[in-house]
Design a protein around this nucleic acid. Structure first.
Lengths: 342, 342
DNA sequence: AACGTTCTTGTAAACGATTACAAGCACCCT
DNA sequence: AGGGTGCTTGTAATCGTTTACAAGAACGTT
């Protein structure tokens, strides 16, 4: 059927013996007489007609596409988000256009310029770093944008963020309750939004419990990746001997786990370990990794819904959503005996 | 600047005092006098003009978008592919539209129908299952398609595939050379293309080396996922005590690794383990996982280039590419002493 | 029977770009 | 000076839809 021949609405109209307007109406479910409906339907079927998405977009001003830009497609947390966004918007008939910025602000700005060419109806952006320039561009974008992640105070844009300060609090509290006292911290780059927030959360939580804050027990990896985590963990363990380590994300945590193993330290026996993001790899890890769940999926879903809402009612008031964190306890942070008991 | 006001080519033409044709020419770098170029450029800048992607698409018949459909966005191998495809096509100015079919054939057929509406210029598809119906649709698609994965004999479509039979051969050979004799196999669903191929490869490799093929030492998970792997590994180990296990995929392998640990079996001491796909998680695993590299990234790159080629020269002859596998040896398959030596 | 509603349908103008074609112009040649 | 050559530029058609508007048909009402 329809052997590779493109047929247009005009052809259908001719074959059905009606005007193009009638064809369009029938195909869009607008009222028409049974006779016309019937002839258009069969003509369309015979010709294997499929409406052209581009032409429709041009006329109605909608592309039915939503762009998603994330820093690092290699990070499972972004993959999970991508998946969820895709799922939610698909229900409303939107397609997902993926733009992986390398985490560079310039890429994101370029993307915004591109966005104004109108290849998508809206954008979901999760920037690692937020500069004034970026904020300015975001603010006067012609298209709706939802930000996943924190924004500077006073910036009024739809956004949804995690409460990573509370998240770090959960991690530290959990470890303290397990009797750990020397809780170290493997962070990502502190010049990123999440890096800064997580450091703040760590310091706050430690101070709150009167745990000693040792500069030697803090290290920040050059990136939120496994490889960077290996280097960071080496440095940390060469100058400090903690009985627990919190990591700013799961990749850093499994890297740390690996370095601990190489040094003959057992997890959780010698060192308890907690990751962050609660991605798939937390479950895969051996021992499985206790991780702070920052609600990545929930954030992605909220962002997608926020964007859909704005597309439907452009005038709606700006909405900022905060997703509450929780802690998923697994093997890496509880003594074997307890794990068996629980 | 350009505070959220849409300006068109007509506006630019008016402001510059030239015709729309001239504006278009200047903006597309076609020859024009310096005077015209100058006035158009400044007019465009003043108005913050950005050409509309949809209108351009309609006229020139290109969307500058390429669709990618994979079965399971949760599987790191697809993520790696996605990443690579995105990278390659971006160089030629294409955007990536992601369509995650749940692995269901029907989803893929729906996608093809959608494709004919012309929202993308081409498609890269990696189907888990290939039915006659799907092949038929693929064949008379109006748009260029590249398949990642094997196709039934005689189907002439651009495609790039892995040689998983040889891949399994590498895994078995490696394990045999390590002195392993009871080599078990954790497969994915056998009604999938990769599942069937990997089983075939396993049997062939075992037969070739006169290793005993024990039905009890073969199990197929209900899916290529970690969870399905846990169940499959449980079954396998409850009825067989192999000294090595090959898994059809890295997720199944880490699941197996976990079950082995739970049963107090050491890797590679008691059981050597080899995964397949050589994804990021092979490196993260503890012990790190020896894995057959089926060239996922190379396949993705080849597929992207094949599609770009076909977009540039539609009449080019059909090309089928096979990527050679290799084995990445890590800790999970070699005795500790050897690992230290190497 | 004339008139006003309501419903169906067609005509034609958009949407915002690209581009074939022709016209205008300067220039050079013989 | 006449006529070809080669540029630059504008006019207008076109891509494939949707949709405002008006015209026509059908029907009920008085």
């Amino acid at each position: 059927m329809t052997p590779a021949k493109k047929s247009t609405l005009v052809l259908v109209a001719e074959r059905a013996g009606v005007s193009t307007a009638s064809v369009s109406r029938v195909l869009n479910g607008l009222p028409a007489s049974d006779r016309v409906i019937e002839s258009v339907r069969t003509a369309a079927r015979d010709l294997g007609y499929v409406p052209d998405a581009t032409a429709r977009s041009l006329k109605v001003g909608k592309t039915e596409q939503i762009a998603l830009a994330v820093a690092d497609v290699g990070n499972p947390v972004y993959v999970a988000m991508m998946h969820e966004v895709s799922r939610v918007i698909a229900k409303d008939g939107y397609r997902l256009v993926l733009s992986s910025t390398g985490g560079a602000v310039q890429d994101e700005i370029d993307l915004l310029d591109g966005l104004n060419r109108g290849f998508a109806d809206g954008l979901i952006l999760s920037p690692l770093r937020v500069t004034d320039d970026l904020v300015a561009r975001l603010r006067d974008s012609r298209l709706p944008i939802v930000i996943i992640g924190s924004l500077p105070d006073g910036v009024e844009l739809d956004n949804v963020r995690a409460d990573s300060v509370r998240g770090m609090g959960l991690a530290v509290k959990h470890l303290a309750r397990q009797g750990r006292r020397h809780i170290a911290f493997v962070n990502g780059p502190v010049d990123t939004v999440p890096g800064a927030a997580r450091l703040g959360g760590y310091l706050k939580a430690m101070a709150k419990r009167d745990l000693v804050i040792d500069p030697d027990a803090q290290v920040s990896a050059s990136d939120f990746t496994f490889k960077a985590g290996l280097e960071a963990a080496e440095i940390l363990l060469s100058r400090s001997t903690p009985d627990a380590i919190v990591c700013a994300n799961d990749l850093l945590a499994v890297a740390t786990m690996k370095v601990l193993a190489q040094r003959g330290l057992s997890v959780p026996g010698d060192v308890a370990l907690v990751g962050m993001d609660d991605t798939d790899i937390a479950e895969l890890a051996n021992p499985s990794l206790t991780s702070v769940n920052l609600g990545s999926v929930a954030r992605a879903r909220a962002a997608a819904k926020l964007l859909l809402r704005r597309l439907n009612e452009p005038g709606a008031p700006v909405k900022q959503v905060v997703i509450e964190p929780s802690l998923t306890v697994r093997e890496s942070s509880v003594h074997a005996t307890e794990a068996v008991l629980s």
